Structure formats: C-alpha cells, structure tokens
Simulated scan of single mutants.
Amino acid sequence: MRFHTRKWVKPEDLNPNGTLFGGQLLAWIDEEAALYTIIQLENSKIVTKYISEINFMSSAKQGDIVEIGMEVVKFGRSSITMKCEARNKMTRETILTVDNIIMVNLGKNGKPSPHGKTKVEFVKDRLS
C-alpha cells in the first residue's frame, strides 16, 4: 500500500477524550480517496458511492502524524474500488482499515460515466 498523505493531529481534530475524532479521520480519508480517484481517472467530477465497514484499531493524540494509504482493489466500468489504511507515524500502529471505498466517475450530465481505465497509472508515466 502506498501512503500518499500525512496529517498532523491538531487541537481542533480531537474528541472529548483528547484523541483524534473518528469523523475527522474519515473526512481526511474521503478527501484522499477523491484526490486519488481524480488523478487516476483524470476527471474532477467524481463522487463517493460507498464506504464499507470501518475497523478502528487504535487512535492518535495531539501532535501525532497520521499517514493515509490507498490501494486500488479493482476498476469497474464507471467506478474505482480502493482499500485504505490509516496509521500513526509516531506509534507505528494501524489506526483503522477500510476494505472497500467505491468512487464513481461522472460525465458532463452528472450521471455515472465509463472511464476506460483498467490499471493504476502514475503521473510520471503519462508525461513520457
């Protein structure tokens, strides 16, 4: 799994227990999934269709650095399915895993549209 994003846990990210609020982490994950999909499908018009069961395993506290990793599971006709892991860079513990995040490619009419992609592409390969 490739870890693309790091987030610094700040006071505004904490819950009443003084640990990272799960909803904040899920917002970061949804944003990362969207950015990853936009880059892979080369289309900024995408939406989150589905996020499977979320398995919280540990937490993070103020000052910790959280890494978010995404890996493509499969390409559908108009979708991309990924799995995700968030880990605490300071403690080296996995914070959570998500087995399936489905993002859908939209056409100009706002409806699901085929994207024609079948494998992960890296930007550096598109530039050659």
Results as ranks from 00 to 15, higher is better:
R2S: 14
F3A: 15
F3C: 12
F3L: 13
H4W: 13
H4G: 15
T5W: 15
W8R: 15
V9S: 09
K10M: 15
E12T: 05
D13Y: 01
D13L: 01
N15V: 03
N15F: 01
T19I: 06
T19D: 13
L20F: 01
G22K: 10
G22P: 05
G22C: 08
L25Q: 01
L25K: 04
L25E: 00
L26C: 02
L26N: 03
L26A: 05
A27K: 15
I29T: 01
D30T: 05
D30A: 06
E32G: 06
A33N: 00
A34R: 15
A34I: 08
A34V: 11
L35G: 11
L35F: 11
L35C: 12
Y36G: 07
Y36L: 09
Y36H: 10
T37A: 11
I39M: 13
Q40A: 04
E42N: 15
N43L: 02
S44N: 14
K45Y: 12
T48P: 05
T48L: 15
I51G: 06
S52T: 00
E53Q: 14
I54G: 06
F56W: 03
M57E: 08
S58I: 01
S59I: 05
Q62R: 09
I65K: 13
V66R: 08
V66T: 06
E67C: 13
G69I: 03
E71Q: 10
E71H: 14
V72F: 07
V72E: 06
V73N: 11
V73A: 11
V73I: 12
K74Y: 09
K74A: 12
G76C: 04
S78Q: 05
S79W: 06
S79D: 04
I80Y: 00
I80G: 03
K83Y: 01
E85Y: 03
E85F: 07
A86T: 05
R87A: 10
R87W: 06
K89I: 10
T91E: 00
R92Y: 12
E93S: 08
E93T: 07
E93D: 11
E93H: 01
I95T: 02
L96Y: 00
T97M: 04
V98H: 00
V98I: 12
V98A: 07
V98E: 04
N100R: 11
I101H: 04
I102K: 03
M103N: 11
M103A: 10
V104C: 04
V104H: 06
N105T: 07
N105S: 07
L106R: 00
L106G: 07
L106T: 04
N109E: 09
G110W: 00
G110C: 02
K111E: 13
K111L: 13
K111M: 10
P112R: 03
P114M: 02
P114K: 05
H115Y: 04
H115V: 00
H115M: 00
H115R: 01
G116V: 05
K117A: 05
K117R: 08
K119Y: 11
D125Q: 13
D125S: 13
D125W: 03
L127W: 12
S128A: 12
